[in-house]
Design a protein around this nucleic acid. Structure first.
Lengths: 199, 199
DNA sequence: GTCTATATTGCGATAGAC
DNA sequence: GTCTATCGCAATATAGAC
């Protein structure tokens, strides 16, 4: 147990919320894992929801920094698109089970959704859509491509595998199959799928 | 209020579980919506979890029948693949917000998962993978395509938009945008993405 | 079968000692 | 700041009257 009580609570909450979701995690459980008292959650964060909100904000800050590096503004649009997929996978590899927290929030919004999630998702979605538009203009993607649809499908392929838990992944993919080549497979499907000139 | 108490409970539970998930739905709420007594849930289903299990089983039976029609065994493999995507969208159009229940289960398995979900998902995944293998053998899809990866990406594109709630969909897609053309867009990306002979 | 009433458990939050 | 003790609430499940 190192770090302040507040930091330990944040770390424990992140792990437990990521794994089991907001509803199935109790403050007593978090405090226990953090080696702290249950009352400290209210003291530091004003309650369970405040702690949850703090965890989400922390994650989004990291994700933002991460995408800031993997999707550089001063590079060709197609590289930003690739950076989105690779960045997401790299982030997940560094923080397994954490993206599930975000995706769960997308599926079942808590009161935090509007204030902490929406602005960030809008930002990323905007970058993705404009990168796609620019790629179309630059001739890398097929004329007539719908940026919103293309962005949605790219996000779908990049996120679904993380959203679906380990057990479900086992059923769809082979057991113990690594996610190693998946980003490149997604990018191949995306590039060919929306770049091919004709059927 | 028509039908037996048991039927009304099932219908109300399906609606509420679909919309808010297992944890955020109480038996009192279900019973109230069904015009029944809270104790009737235990009487007919042995408890909340039993009711939930009954709902899941009912849904899967319908989905199975639905896929049985949309993915006919005696047709070319590529038609079965198309039938998967179109069938899923048609099912969702007929039962909005219901696929979220299944996808939520994939993300956060309850004790029902192993017994009622896994066998069905394995079955569908198996059909999808073998259809893809056959399409590769028949020359419709590119040589060297990995059936498991291809099936995963197709399922990702087909499911993510339903998993993500209306609010989140609003953020990614334009507001009020219809899902009309999405199945064909997915199939186009899939066909071209894994069918193109070379880059 | 359907109801009321209640047993029981677990939750989040807080008051107050230290 | 950190603790114990507890309040108040809502949940599921059940016992028992009708």
């Amino acid at each position: 147990m190192d770090g302040s009580v507040k930091e330990r609570l944040l770390a424990a909450a992140r792990a437990l919320f990521s794994e089991k979701g907001f509803d199935r995690t109790s403050v007593r459980e978090i405090a226990g894992a953090a080696g702290a008292n249950a009352a400290s959650v209210s003291y530091y964060f004003g309650g369970k929801e405040g702690l949850y909100r703090a965890v989400l904000e922390e994650i989004w800050e990291e994700l933002k920094r991460h995408f800031g590096k993997s999707m550089p503004e001063n590079r060709p649009p197609m590289e930003r698109i690739e950076g989105f997929v690779r960045g997401l996978f790299a982030f997940h590899a560094a923080n397994p089970s954490l993206i599930r927290l975000i995706n769960r929030e997308l599926a079942d919004p808590t009161p935090c959704f509007e204030t902490v999630i929406v602005p960030h998702v809008e930002r990323i979605a905007g970058i993705l859509k404009s990168s796609i538009s620019e790629s179309v203009a630059g001739g890398d993607l097929r004329e007539g491509t719908d940026p919103a649809i293309a962005a949605l499908l790219l996000a779908s392929m990049s996120n679904y595998v993380f959203l679906v838990g380990p057990v479900a992944r086992r059923v769809i993919l082979d057991p113990e199959r690594s996610l190693e080549g998946l980003p490149e497979a997604i990018l191949t499907v995306f590039r060919k799928g929306v770049a091919c000139r004709e059927a």
